[in-house]
Amino acid sequence: MRRLVTFFATVAAVGMAAFWFVTRPDTLPRDALAGLVGDEARGERIFWAGGCASCHMAPGSEGARVLELAGGQKFPSPFGTFIAPNISPDPVHGIGGWSAHDLANAMTRGVSPAGQHYFPVFPYTSFARARFQDIVDLYAFLLTLPAVETPSLPHDVGFPFDIRRAIGVWKRLFFNKNWVVSGDLSPTETRGRYLSEALAHCGECHTPRNILGAMERDRWLAGGPIPGGKGNFPNITPAKLDWSEADIVEYLTSGFTPDYDSAGGHMALVVDNMAHLPPEDRTAIAAYLKKVPPAE
C-alpha cells in the first residue's frame, strides 16, 4: 500500500513538473535587441500600423486623446471579458518602467516583464512576426506619449481560462509565427503582408477562430461573428471582397466604401490609423489582400 501511494505521488509530481516545464514562458535571449537604436519618427509609423491606440486608448477617445493610452476598453469573448491595460509611459500604471526588451518579449512572445503569459487577446500571435528594429522604434515613440495615472483593471475571466500557465499549452498548440500567405510575392505585396499579418493584425478580427480561440489559418480573413456583439466581421478574401485595389486604398484612406457609405464600428478606428500611414503602405495592403487565398 505504501508503495502504491509513493508510486502515485511520484507520477503526480512528475506530471506537475512536466506541466510546469512545458508551459513555462519562453522569453527572448538577453541580447536579442543588441545594437538596435530606436527612432521615434519611424516608431510613430509602426504605432499607427499596429493600431495600438484603438484598443489601449480610454473608451470613446477622439482626436489627440487617442494618444493617451490609459486602457479600460472591454473586449468580450467566449472566455470572459478582457480589459485593455494602461500602456502609457506612466512608471506605476503603464509601461514607463519597461525596457525595449520587455516590450519585445510582450509583443513577440506574449510574456509580461514579470514572466507571466499574456492572454492572446493581446495580438502577439501577429506581432511575433514584427522586426525587432520596428519594436525598438515603437518603444521610442511610446515613451514620448503622455503618461496617464489610470490603474489597469483585472480581466474578468472565469475558471479554467484564468489559469495563466495553461496559456503555455495554448501557445504550444497554436502559436505559429510563419507567414500565412506564401508563394511568389512582389515587393509591394511582401510589404503589404508584413503590414497586414505582423503589424495591423487584420486576421485577429477577420479570421474565424476555433473552439479554443485560435485563428483558423486555412480560413484566413474569411470573417466570423463579432463576439459579444451584433453582426459579423466581414470576409475580406477575394471570394467576397470584390473591391478594386483603388477601392481598398480609398477605404483605408477616407473610410469611404465603393458606394460611398463610411466605415463604422471598430473598423472606423482602423481607418483612422491607416490614414496616418504613407500612401504606399495602403497600396501595399490592398495588393496583399488580392493575394489572399479565396475562402467562402
Partner: peptide, 15 residues
C-alpha cells in the same frame, strides 16, 4: 470621410 465617420463610429449599428 472622417467627418462622416464621426457619427457612424459612435452611433451606428453594424450591418
Amino acid at each position: 470621410g472622417g467627418a462622416c465617420g464621426g457619427c457612424h463610429k459612435v452611433a451606428r449599428i453594424p450591418k
